[in-house]
Design a protein around this nucleic acid. Structure first.
Lengths: 265, 265
DNA sequence: CTCAATTTGTTCGTATGTATG
DNA sequence: ACATACATACGAACAAATTGA
């Protein structure tokens, strides 16, 4: 068995879908540019070591997605209007988390059996007395990009229920003078969509998602916001400012204030 | 067509694989606990709205993966030894980026046609005069978890070539007194594995990856480190400290030093 | 011990999808 | 486009193991 065949066999996904994934990726990262003619079917056959029909199935799929088009006698081309991916910048600090989402309009999902309260791990604070459970789908340009499942301390929700239903919760929360927020943190892992998620986010079952757990704790160590957010993984981009020296000239921004120097070689 | 069938049809991945994905996820997030008996085949048939054989194929797959085992007449159970996922904490700040990786041992990959130099976008600094191109696979416990493709300013590489070949580059870089680092940043998106990546990381072609672009710029705005890092997406976890109030009592750590308050309701 | 209920395991026939040359 | 082989998916029926009454 050839080396490539062994790699294909690591997955039970049909071969033409694996080939299509690779080609799709090449278009999306710009390795194959808009309007450009891509390799001939024969070249692709040889490169991917699959039968001609298999390449064609992959090409057909991408053509259906609007990424490629074929012209008999001329070749296969990347679509001219670059269906550019539009990124949603996921924040790694509070200010840039609040800002871009505050104008999003969530669509509330009805919940039949709301959980009693959030399950809190160690270091996630103490539970509030009571929570409301809110579930919503977030949209941008009529395209759903995430599902938020949120436990919100009831006393805070009761202060502005209408606001909390119309807007994302974090900006509303940030607008309150009290209680003061002591800490907000978030962890992210990659998961796969279950049928309900896939339905809401218009994606395939098992397709990758980014699962965020975001927790806000007040000055009394009360977990006032405990949210699980599931994003389509194909529209998010994380930017991390790892280090920025307090600059001598130029813009001064958030800074760790620490020199990045660790040890001697 | 039922609602579920429509959701399944969003993907051309075989049905039993979609079902298996959902079940695998349930085990991994602990919704189905170690040793617990899961629903009977008949219940699963009804829940997923698929034929018995299809459920069986999914169960068989997960049994092969060591996540489930079946006993005729008794039922199907989640494996007792929880094959816990071991997370690799991806850093969102410099100090915690350097620390955990400094003892990893990269395995250098030979490169036949090294690119001349990195492609730098706006805001990514000026190019250095010359670069070395290094490519390596990172391991933890003999398990590959990422591929690093790195452009490193040649003058820096020449100072400690042996070190740069034996250890991850960032800790070595951090150990230098000069040049001083002005800024380090990183962006992350989710992608899919191409055949070469899949081979190195022992994953399926098209399976999700986390693609990091990490850039380190020196005091003269020179991009001295331009790295593209591809992680298996199933072993990484990102922790983001969004906000931490400079605490009155208790531990004081890196802090934005800014109050998270944005506007009035 | 036997019986019935439960649950996984196996088989058949049919239709469609995938992959090769 | 064709012939071929194998995988996927359905529904249904039957066999085999386990459990508890």
């Amino acid at each position: 068995m050839s080396k490539l065949a062994r790699v294909y066999n690591r997955s039970r996904v049909p071969l033409y879908l694996q080939v299509a994934s690779v080609m799709r990726q090449r278009i999306e990262v710009g390795h194959w540019r808009s309007g450009q003619r891509i390799s001939t079917l024969e070249e692709l056959e040889r490169e991917f070591e699959v039968a001609r029909v298999t390449v064609r199935q992959a090409v057909e799929l991408l053509a259906e997605e609007g990424l490629l088009y074929c012209q008999q006698g001329r070749g296969t081309f990347v679509a001219d209007e670059a269906p550019k991916r539009r990124w949603l910048n996921l924040a790694t600090d509070w200010a840039s988390l609040i800002e871009p989402i505050k104008d999003h309009i969530p669509k509330i999902i009805a919940v039949q059996n709301p959980p009693a309260g959030p399950v809190l791990g160690t270091g996630e604070g103490k539970a509030a007395h009571d929570y409301v459970y809110l579930r919503s789908v977030q949209f941008r340009d009529a395209e759903p990009f995430s599902i938020v499942s949120l436990h919100l301390a009831r006393d805070l929700f009761d202060r502005a229920p209408a606001e909390f239903r119309k807007h994302p919760a974090l900006p509303v929360l940030a607008s309150f003078e009290r209680p003061r927020i002591k800490r907000a943190h978030q962890t992210l892992v990659i998961g796969g969509a279950d049928p309900e998620t896939a339905d809401h986010l218009k994606m395939g079952v098992g397709a990758p998602t980014a699962e965020c757990r975001c927790i806000v704790v007040d000055e009394h160590d009360r977990a006032i916001y405990v949210g699980n957010i599931t994003y389509r993984s194909d529209c998010i981009k994380l930017h991390m400012e790892l280090f920025r020296r307090p600059s001598l000239r130029g813009s001064v921004r958030e800074d760790a204030g620490r020199r990045p120097r660790a040890r001697t070689a």
